[in-house]
């Protein structure tokens, strides 16, 4: 990257009101640090407890999704597989709302499954989400990793907005999943 590109990357983030960004592998330590930094930031921004809690909750679920997703994929053996484990996290602060954006690689078949799930979640209203969450909570099994498949429903409930998402085709068997969660 040329030095001018460093500035253009900075400029983009500044113009997009990014207050925190991370690109790399989401580890348990990283997760703890990001949460801690965000809490301190929101304290100093004097956000209401309501919005603080919502942003924190959504961020926890998004980061833990990325963390478990990394654990799922194969051991890093090459530069390529290392990149496959990498993710992008951006936190944007607009005038009256926050946006949590994430990006990560995903297998094409898993992407199809996830897309169906997200479409389903977006088709539900507040009460529908509540009902779906309760049903899933009561019927779900916790996996070895401690995930219960409730993350996206919870994110949608806490956000109170439709989930924004896109799957970009990278290769025949890999997509890049972009998630956009608005919290107001």
């Amino acid at each position: 990257m040329s030095l001018a590109n460093v500035y253009s990357l900075y400029r983009t983030m500044e113009d997009e009101n990014v207050i925190l960004s991370f690109k790399g592998i989401v580890t348990a330590e990283l997760l703890t640090s990001v949460l801690h930094i965000m809490e301190t930031k929101m304290d100093s921004m004097q956000e209401t407890p309501r919005i603080r809690k919502k942003v924190f909750n959504v961020l926890v679920e998004c980061l833990q999704n990325l963390y478990h997703h990394v654990e799922e994929s194969a051991e890093p053996t090459s530069k390529e597989t290392l990149e496959r484990k990498s993710a992008l996290v951006l936190i944007v602060k607009e005038q009256d709302h926050f946006i949590v954006k994430t990006g990560n690689y995903i297998d094409v078949d898993k992407a199809l499954e996830l897309k169906d799930r997200l479409d389903m979640i977006n088709s539900l209203d507040k009460d529908g989400l509540k009902e779906y969450y309760q049903k899933s909570l009561n019927n779900s099994m916790v996996s070895e990793k401690g995930t219960a498949g409730l993350g996206m429903i919870d994110i949608a409930r806490k956000s109170g907005n439709k989930l924004g998402f896109e799957f970009l085709k990278i290769t025949n068997d890999t997509s890049f999943f972009c998630l956009n969660v608005k919290i107001d």
Binding site: Q64, L137, G146, L150, G151, D154
Partner: peptide
């Protein structure tokens, strides 16, 4: 509880 994640929600149930 102040916060709990979805992984905990199942264990709490």
């Amino acid at each position: 509880l102040e916060y709990f994640n979805t992984s905990s929600s199942k264990c709490i149930l």
